[in-house]
Design a protein around this nucleic acid. Structure first.
Ligand SMILES: [Mg+2]
Ligand SMILES: [Mg+2]
Lengths: 498, 498
DNA sequence: CCATTGTTTATAAACATCTTC
DNA sequence: ATGAAGATGTTTATAAACAAT
């Protein structure tokens, strides 16, 4: 029971090829000078990738505590490229020295017959849509806005002021178009940026406007309505009232808080480039590669990339409890146990490999059509799922620059599902913690391998960029698929785990 | 603790006047020949209405077990009319002999200092929009479709067949326009119509189409999308899988199930009328009064009365737990205790009387406008809550028959909120029960006073019709408002409670 | 490939309630 | 105080994208 606070995570290659606009492909492909991380070294920073002893097509990636995300990306990228599509498509991620204050985790992790509570992540293997990946979008962000996060170790009032009237250099920011984050994600970013993890509605507005100028500059005012809608709808957001009852703050239900912050998914890549798209302004902005030819002509606030996210489609299988008591799988309330593992009954996914070509509607990203027309609406015989005109309709020869519509989210921003309320043992409480002292400052996407492992993401081994993600969190110990493993110990094969 | 399974319910007069289309008023007012219930007798069926001994403006309504809803409506109506707007506007409902199998409830209910866990219901006092109330809509329903509910004591397959190919006399049904029920409510009606309380998606479709022909005849196919959306969104709907894993059924989380059925809100009023609106057809249909001049010319499928609902706006006050352990108010899991009372922390409302005129946008019920226009959308400076053109805009002189848009829901269809999972003690399990044997067959809206009390509704004491409801469930024991009461016993003043 | 079913996000909207001016 | 306007909060509807079957 008290066995292993460390849980292996399995990356599994994604099968679905993503729709790629030809024009976007033509534009984006040549402008892929380099990846987020150097993809030349095969085993950097002590990251080790090795074949799994018994599972075919599976490799184990051992991530030392000192490694940064680039290393992991590099390792998996190299492995993916050198083996091709037929190569191993499952990766079990292990953190070599996990929790800094880990207790019994250090000595010899026991390897169950199948990697219990493993996180299986699909890695895409087909041609990928890298037209506007998260990485690319992130590169277009103005790095200066991120630095406001560092100035947040002040009192509430002070940090509010800092958020509101700090010189933000809003030159860049909304040029990348709509950020690829859902409202739910942005709200989490905002609230988690505070030590006390609470914000008023107005502060959330301001934080988002400062960090995503798109909403300040281009978005319709309805975006605030959507923010409020999200706050109310998702019960991961809780409204609390100050003791005097005057102000009300929005917080994140601690059990559901993944503690996602924007700086966990973005760290400015210092690379000074002259701004090509703004000839009059001579302001040099720090942008990442690939921003050159995305030609995000934002002056047409095109119909909201619909953006977002979180390809994690949990559930959809495995409810089947049918008149039976729900079985609590992991009664102990450590992070994974109650936060993820005990929700296995609703997060279990089918892991079997399926050939899957899957039609991909070639719908143009921008179109306008009517909503809520009282008329019985021309085509009345269509599917019950309304679909966009998708070019098949009449008229509308209006063509726009194919921005690619491939804006996807990398992380799973959904709240951590817990079976009961379990409001004790707050999952992650950084109230008094500052991110300044973490030993992973140089890791742009995750503060620790632990975070990397627990948040779940996908790497495109073909393109060196994060895109088009599907995170399948599967608990293979509950499944009956092809993962055959003996009851062996991790450390038996990987002594660095000791 | 074990004290009172019987909990008083307080009806509180609603303050907000409702927008009333003048044309609709002119049309509907004269056609109000009689109310749902005779409003002449002041204290029928043993229903007693008396002033509260200590709370000013408050009356106590004692409802004997044998009373039906008409009696309650009558009593409150008479009281409301005879006292006028200035009169008492709070009513505490008490069931004189509540649970048939009640345990300790019989002997002298203890009256706390304030009516703990009381259900405060606003009664509207202003001019009311009765243009298309639920009662009226219900009267337009084809009574024959309701009778299919009686044929549901068969096996699953049989009842499925009964639902699908029963002769439904669909003549009437969709003529009343869109039913005033939310998707969530209709899904509950559908699922709860089964003994085993489970249905496949297709069966839900079929049930709704059979009982609300509007969706079969007039609604856009997107309504099925909305059904699926509601099933997924609300976690009161659980998908279960048959043991073989082949079929999946939708069920209602038992703790959240109010066991609402359509026949609880509708019972055909036998009154044969020739159908005035369909001259060619000589079919005589059973309709209730008032269907004559509503002139619901459904041939224009006007932009969905937006219909529905459930004016219950819970929460919005009283969270204020601010970094403290949530206090479980009623740990024992009887119906009210866990189902309602223990949710007090999120259902508590402010009960204080507030003068409230409240602007009411005179928006026309049918209009069409564009959705998701990529253009920055003309007025960009408006409120963050998008609002309809509402006549203030240019153009669109198009006027339609003011159907009144006053379709409201009477009952609270929202799931019963429970603090934890508390999946034990299924709240109401009518699997083996038939509604035929209840002593309240003649009560069209509720099978028992208990149901009346627990579901929460509002009576328009001015209009003899249910309309424009706001149910405020308040637990006055947690509030600090103007309800000052001594620590006295109910039975001390109302001996019939003994 | 297609239709059905299931999950999730976005957007608009209707109201209600609370705060400000 | 108070009353209207705006800010905030809650809920439902609808469309849509996409996954899974
Ligand atoms: Mg919420
Ligand atoms: Mg559900």
């Amino acid at each position: 029971m008290r066995r292993s606070p460390r849980r292996p995570l399995i990356l599994k290659r994604r099968k679905l090829p993503f729709h790629q606009s030809e024009a976007a492909e033509a534009q984006n492909r040549p402008a892929e000078p380099e990846s987020t991380c150097p993809s030349s070294q095969s085993v950097p920073d002590g990251v080790r990738v090795m074949d799994h002893p018994s599972m075919s097509g599976t490799q184990v990636v051992v991530i030392p505590k000192t490694a940064n995300l680039q290393s992991v990306i590099s390792a998996l990228t190299v492995k993916g490229k050198e083996s091709g599509v037929q190569g191993p498509n499952k990766f079990i991620l292990l953190s070599a020295n996990n929790e800094p204050s880990a207790q019994a985790a250090a000595q010899g992790v026991h390897l169950p017959s199948r990697p219990a509570d493993g996180l299986l992540v699909d890695l895409p293997c087909g041609p990928l849509d890298d037209s506007l990946t998260n990485i690319q979008w992130l590169g277009k962000m103005n790095s200066s806005v991120l630095e406001t996060d560092l100035a947040q170790s002040k009192s509430d009032k002070e940090s509010q002021k800092a958020d509101s009237n700090q010189a933000e250099k809003p030159a860049v920011g909304s040029e990348g178009g709509r950020p690829p984050f859902s409202y739910m994600a942005m709200i989490q970013f905002a609230i988690n940026s505070r030590q006390n993890k609470m914000m008023t509605l107005k502060e959330i507005y301001t934080w988002i406007e400062n960090h995503f100028p798109y909403y300040r500059d281009l978005a319709k005012p309805g975006w605030k309505n959507s923010i409020r809608h999200n706050l109310s709808l998702h019960d991961m957001f809780i409204r609390e009232t100050s003791p005097d009852g005057k102000v009300s703050f929005w917080t994140i239900r601690p059990e559901a808080n993944r503690c996602l912050t924007l700086d966990q998914v973005y760290k400015p890549q210092k690379r000074i480039l002259p701004d090509v798209r703004k000839p009059p302004s001579s302001v040099k902005v720090e942008v990442k590669e690939e921003s050159v030819d995305v030609r995000v002509s934002c002056e047409t606030p095109r119909a909201a990339p619909k953006t977002n996210p979180s390809r994690s489609r949990r559930k959809q299988r495995l409810v089947q409890s049918l008149h039976e008591e729900p079985v609590l799988l992991c009664p102990n309330n450590t992070f994974f146990d109650s936060g993820v593992a005990s929700d296995a009954s609703s997060m279990l996914q089918n892991v079997r490999d399926r050939p899957d070509r899957s039609r991909q509607r070639p719908d143009s990203p921008d179109r306008e059509y009517c909503f809520k027309t009282p008329i019985k609406s021309s085509s009345h015989l269509a599917s019950s799922t309304p679909s966009k005109p998708s070019g098949g309709a009449v008229a509308e020869p209006w063509k726009v620059t194919p921005v690619g519509k491939g804006t996807q989210t990398v992380l799973d921003f959904s709240p951590i599902r817990t079976p009961g309320s379990a409001s004790l043992t707050p999952r992650c409480d950084f109230t008094a913690l500052s991110f300044s002292g973490t030993p992973f400052k140089d890791c742009p996407l995750f503060n620790s391998p632990r975070e990397l492992l627990t948040s779940g993401f996908v790497l495109d081994t073909m393109n060196d960029s994060l895109s088009k993600i599907l995170v399948d969190i599967s608990f293979t110990g509950l499944e009956d698929d092809d993962l055959g493993m003996a009851n062996i110990s991790w450390s038996e094969f990987f002594p660095q785990l000791k």
